Deep mutational scan, measured.
Amino acid sequence: AKPPKTVTVKVEVTNADGETQTRTVTLTNLPKDLKPGDTVTLPETGQTARIVEITP
């Protein structure tokens, strides 16, 4: 079996106070056609994050 493909992405997350924070997260099994501006759900927090940058 192939190991899951991990991708490092820079995302913007809005916290409970309405502040936008930029975080770098490593995600696995992202859709192939994901692009900056799309939103993903962070598995560890369940927060919705907007992708700023994808590092191949």
Score class of each variant (00 low, 15 high):
35 K>H: 06
9 V>Q: 00
38 D>N: 03
7 V>L: 14
23 R>N: 03
20 T>H: 05
42 L>P: 00
35 K>M: 08
14 T>Y: 12
7 V>W: 15
30 L>H: 11
19 E>Y: 14
15 N>T: 12
52 V>G: 00
33 D>W: 14
9 V>K: 00
39 T>R: 06
3 P>Q: 07
11 V>F: 07
44 E>L: 09
45 T>W: 05
18 G>Q: 02
53 E>C: 09
30 L>A: 14
2 K>S: 14
47 Q>L: 10
54 I>S: 02
34 L>G: 02
9 V>C: 08
24 T>D: 04
40 V>P: 00
34 L>V: 11
3 P>R: 04
49 A>H: 02
4 P>C: 13
51 I>Y: 01
30 L>G: 09
26 T>K: 08
51 I>V: 14
56 P>K: 08
4 P>G: 13
48 T>Q: 11
24 T>R: 05
44 E>Q: 08
1 A>H: 13
33 D>C: 10
49 A>C: 06
3 P>F: 09
53 E>H: 06
50 R>G: 01
33 D>Q: 08
37 G>D: 02
39 T>F: 15
3 P>A: 06
50 R>F: 09
29 N>S: 09
18 G>W: 01
11 V>Y: 11
27 L>G: 02
36 P>D: 02
56 P>Q: 11
5 K>S: 12
45 T>E: 03
22 T>G: 03
20 T>S: 07
19 E>I: 13
43 P>I: 08
44 E>N: 08
39 T>G: 02
28 T>M: 11
51 I>T: 00
55 T>F: 15
10 K>Y: 06
3 P>S: 05
37 G>E: 01
16 A>W: 09
45 T>L: 06
49 A>W: 08
2 K>V: 13
37 G>N: 03
9 V>D: 00
50 R>T: 13
55 T>Y: 15
19 E>L: 12
52 V>F: 03
5 K>N: 14
29 N>T: 07
52 V>A: 02
24 T>C: 07
55 T>N: 13
10 K>W: 10
27 L>P: 00
36 P>S: 04
48 T>K: 09
39 T>D: 04
14 T>P: 03
39 T>K: 07
50 R>V: 14
14 T>D: 04
8 T>C: 08
55 T>Q: 13
12 E>K: 06
3 P>K: 06
27 L>K: 01
40 V>E: 00
51 I>A: 01
36 P>R: 05
54 I>G: 01
33 D>A: 08
19 E>C: 12
54 I>A: 02
6 T>Q: 12
20 T>A: 06
29 N>Y: 10
23 R>L: 15
12 E>C: 06
21 Q>D: 08
52 V>Q: 03
23 R>V: 14
23 R>A: 05
17 D>P: 03
35 K>Y: 05
8 T>F: 11
51 I>S: 00
18 G>H: 02
7 V>Q: 10
11 V>L: 07
4 P>R: 07
15 N>C: 07
4 P>W: 05
48 T>A: 09
14 T>I: 13
10 K>L: 15
10 K>H: 04
46 G>D: 04
48 T>M: 11
34 L>W: 13
4 P>L: 11
1 A>Q: 12
45 T>F: 05
26 T>W: 07
9 V>E: 00
4 P>T: 12
30 L>E: 07
18 G>S: 02
23 R>H: 08
39 T>P: 04
21 Q>H: 13
35 K>I: 05
28 T>V: 12
47 Q>E: 15
33 D>S: 08
10 K>I: 15
7 V>M: 15
11 V>Q: 00
51 I>P: 00
14 T>V: 13
50 R>P: 00
42 L>Y: 02
38 D>K: 02
7 V>F: 15
32 K>G: 13
31 P>Y: 13
8 T>L: 10
43 P>G: 06
25 V>E: 03
2 K>R: 11
12 E>L: 14
12 E>D: 04
49 A>Q: 00
47 Q>I: 07
6 T>F: 13
19 E>P: 03
2 K>I: 14
40 V>R: 00
25 V>Q: 02
52 V>H: 02
53 E>T: 07
55 T>G: 11
10 K>N: 03
23 R>S: 05
7 V>A: 07
54 I>N: 02
17 D>E: 11
48 T>D: 06
1 A>D: 12
31 P>A: 11
33 D>P: 07
30 L>R: 03
15 N>I: 06
31 P>D: 14
6 T>Y: 15
8 T>A: 05
13 V>Y: 15
23 R>T: 07
16 A>D: 10
14 T>N: 05
8 T>P: 01
38 D>F: 03
42 L>Q: 00
27 L>I: 07
55 T>M: 15
44 E>M: 09
50 R>I: 15
13 V>L: 10
43 P>V: 06
31 P>L: 13
50 R>D: 01
13 V>P: 00
6 T>S: 12
56 P>S: 14
39 T>Q: 09
